[in-house]
């Protein structure tokens, strides 16, 4: 329906343990109080991090939602890149991808591992 309500669901989930418990108990029922499209409901329930990102969910909200689902950091970043590949560029908001899918931490982590070895 709108990016506003899609983000509102995740905002509510991110900050309330009670909301998280209700969502875990019955996700479909939890979402009935929000005005959402079937695509949005499916992306939330799956969770489809890549599609949520493309739909324009702010990364600061999405990052916390991914953590709620115990999604590891690298998998979170990978899911967003895959979402772009499958659905195209972010459709709304200010968290668009600008780096053409480049991994900005891989090379520095290799350096980090090297420095640990050299110590």
């Amino acid at each position: 329906m709108s990016l506003y309500y899609l983000q509102k669901v995740l905002y509510d989930l991110n900050r309330s343990e009670e909301a998280q418990a209700n969502f875990r108990k019955d996700g479909d029922d939890f979402l009935t109080s929000y005005t959402l499209t079937d695509e949005e409901i499916g992306a939330i329930l799956k969770p489809d991090i890549g599609l949520l990102y493309v739909l324009g969910v702010n990364g600061q909200i999405l990052m916390h939602y991914a953590a709620f689902h115990q999604i590891e950091w690298d998998d979170y970043l990978k899911s967003m890149r895959e979402g772009i590949e499958e659905h195209g560029q972010v459709r709304d908001g200010v968290y668009t991808m600008t780096g053409s899918g480049k991994n900005f931490t891989a090379s520095t982590e290799a350096k980090s591992n090297k420095s640990e070895v050299n110590q």
Partner: peptide, 11 residues
């Protein structure tokens, strides 16, 4: 910085 996006780490 470009946090919480696929560009995370870009500085």
């Amino acid at each position: 910085h470009w946090p919480a996006t696929p560009d995370s780490g870009k500085i």
